[in-house]
Design a binder for these strands. Structure first.
Length: 593
RNA sequence: GCCCGGGUAGCUCAGUGGAUAGAGCAGAAGUUUCCUAAACUUUUGGUCGGAGGUUCAAUUCCUCUCCCGGGUACCA
């Protein structure tokens, strides 16, 4: 995608030479395969139809480029033209002007985009699934901001409902007044423990019922819920909550606050800052007015049994109001969608939610369109796959989840140990821990972003996340090496004020430069696809290219001071791009590793 | 049944019509008198699930088919 002077000049030339060649054709450079001779490739198949034949197009390109002042040599294979640029021309568009290069990654149409992600329940701490969601959401926000959009990040906490009451009931019965302070447990973990306790007690009761009533063998556990004493008590608590029973509300408030404090720690560890957090307890009644309006508009209709439905054609009928007049999940979502729109007037809204809700969002978006909201065309469900363990699926109810905070601690500890082994003398323990935190969290986030969001991923807690190979730390390490060189250069007082970019360049320097030309395109592509994975792949390539350069091209010990200055500039520009790219994935860079 | 994903190296995954299908891990063999070896080099490993079709060119697009996952509630 990248454009150089030669590509724009070539397009102008071909437009003159060939009658049918559109004057506004953009010819872009592509990466030249490593085994080929050349810095960049021009794929003439792409515009061959204007030139008679692929070979005619390529030959015309070769004829023109071989006389271009920026070009050192060209090679034609089929309709691929591999171009070797003069060093000055290659660097001019890339490493010589990194700020200019990075600034090219700006969208032509900045919009205001609202992203909703995380959306945890207050009955349990966050686990690896949430971490994937959080990482996808925060990096998408960073990515869209990076290319120039106005991004609003919001959270919608599910803080009410029957599942919340389960933790509360368990606390009432088995809690003995314990608090996070009294037991030294993080608030969300304490509440989550009661949720697990509840389910144990419930299962015990159901098993007992099944023993007493063999005739119920066909009924599901969910079905038997209201046959249990625990279940009816929970149902009653939900009703009491809805009518505002002071004791229930007080317990609810207390336990939710514990959870919120716990979540705040989790979000802080990840570096998440929401612009606003909506609480479902304040929004769950929204949407009924929309249903009333939709009925008038004829978008919805009343079924014989009294339920209000949205007839959605192929997707079937969707109930939007129960026959008893109460709302369902999608009713609330209609309401909160409108609320978010009214609060922020975004031009687009994105929901980061697991792929089991694909149909729900298709229906929601279709309903909003039918209700006549013009902005409903720009609603987008960023759907991601589940995270499975070698032992199977994670289940909160059974406590078989990888806990987010535990995972952060494990990653940070592993990285800190490695840092301690490598740290130079005199580095403080505080600094070592900071490096460990940055590397551990970087490894985790990178792993979660490297994969396509859609893939159902397998996570092996034993293997955990690695620090070598295709990982975040691999990229961080390249940055650390550069910073180390920069420190030594400063110590030695090396003059870097003037750089001669026309000096002969080693192949590793040139391929590094050629690769950086594609950075803006990668960012724009990633933003357009709403997926950081292409950026992750690109940064790995760039770090790999740097490591080859590092191996082959001495910087501080370069043959001449001029070459040293040029290579220092290459290092600094590379570091700037790698750091910018990692920041766009919400990953920090340690000062040393 | 219907709808939506996925199936590419032993494993985890890239690859949105272009050159001989790539990377990491795992396996094999090497590289520290020299800026950080969390690195680098070499190497083993593929009927891109299967069958047709579209075209100069298909892992990529179309049709059929097989396997895996998810969804298909007056749950969220």
């Amino acid at each position: 995608m990248a454009t150089f002077s030669i590509t724009t000049d070539l397009a102008a030339h071909l437009a003159q030479k060939f009658e049918r060649f559109p004057a506004d054709t953009v010819i872009t450079a592509e990466r030249c395969p490593a085994e080929m001779q050349g810095d960049i490739t021009i794929n003439c198949f792409r515009f061959a139809r204007y030139c008679g034949s692929p070979v005619a197009a390529a030959q015309a390109a070769v004829d023109f480029l071989s006389t271009h002042p920026d070009v050192e040599s060209v090679e034609m294979i089929k309709a691929f033209v591999n171009v070797t640029l003069k060093p000055a021309a290659l660097f001019r568009a890339t490493l010589a002007n990194p700020a200019e290069l990075m600034a090219q990654a700006k969208t032509a149409a900045p919009t205001r985009i609202l992203i909703e992600y995380s959306a945890p329940n207050t009955n349990k701490p966050q686990h690896l699934g949430h971490v994937r969601n959080n990482t996808l959401g925060m990096s998408l926000a960073a990515l869209l901001k990076r290319v120039g959009h106005d991004v609003i990040q919001i959270n919608l906490v599910n803080d009410r409902g029957i599942h919340i009451c389960k933790s509360m009931i368990a606390y009432q019965r088995f809690g003995n007044g314990v608090t996070p302070e009294s037991c030294g447990m993080k608030g969300d973990h304490l509440v989550g423990k009661f949720y697990v306790d509840y389910n144990k007690a419930l299962n015990a009761e159901i098993n007992e019922l099944r023993r007493q009533h063999p005739e119920w063998a066909d009924r599901s556990n969910d079905d038997l819920f209201l046959e249990t004493e625990l279940g009816t008590a929970t149902q009653k608590m939900l009703r009491d909550w809805e009518t505002g029973d002071p004791a229930v509300r007080e317990l609810w408030q207390m336990m939710n606050n514990w959870v919120f404090e716990g979540f705040a720690d989790t979000y802080r560890a990840m570096g998440i800052e929401f612009d606003h957090t909506y609480l479902e307890s304040q929004t769950y009644l929204l949407g009924k007015d929309i249903v009333a309006r939709g009925l008038e508009q004829g978008v919805f209709s009343k079924r014989a049994d009294g339920a209000v439905i949205a007839p959605l054609g192929k997707m079937g009928d969707k109930v939007v109001l129960r026959s008893d007049g109460t709302s369902v999940y999608i009713t609330q979502d209609m309401g909160t969608t409108l609320l978010k729109y009214d609060d922020y007037k975004p031009q687009a809204m994105i929901w980061v939610v697991g792929d089991e809700q694909n149909l729900h969002f298709q229906m929601l978006f279709e309903i909003m369109k039918r209700l006549g909201y013009d902005w409903a065309a720009n609603l987008y469900h960023l759907s991601y796959g589940m995270v499975n363990l070698p032992s199977g699926k994670m289940k909160s109810r059974e406590g078989t989840v990888v806990d987010a905070d535990d995972l952060f601690a494990k990653m940070t500890d592993l990285a800190t140990i490695a840092c301690r082994e490598r740290a130079a003398e005199g580095v403080s323990e505080e600094e070592i821990r900071e490096r460990g935190r940055i590397i551990g969290m970087g490894a985790l986030k990178f792993m979660l972003l490297k994969f396509n969001a859609k893939t159902t991923m397998m996570f092996d807690p034993e293997a955990c996340v690695r620090f070598d190979g295709d990982t975040g730390p691999y990229i961080q390490y390249a940055c650390a090496r550069i910073q180390s060189i920069a420190r030594r250069a400063a110590e030695r007082g090396i003059d870097t004020t003037t750089v001669d970019w026309s000096l002969p360049a080693a192949p590793e320097e040139k391929s590094l430069a050629a690769l950086t030309a594609f950075y803006p395109d990668v960012l724009l592509l990633a933003a357009e696809r709403r997926d950081a994975a292409p950026l992750a792949e690109y940064l790995l390539d760039l770090a790999k290219s740097f490591n080859r350069f590092y191996r082959e091209c001495p910087v501080l010990n370069a043959e001449t001071p001029e070459l040293c200055a040029r290579r220092l500039a290459i290092c600094e520009a590379t570091r700037a791009i790698l750091t910018d790219g990692l920041a766009t994935m919400t990953i920090e860079v340690p000062t040393a590793m």
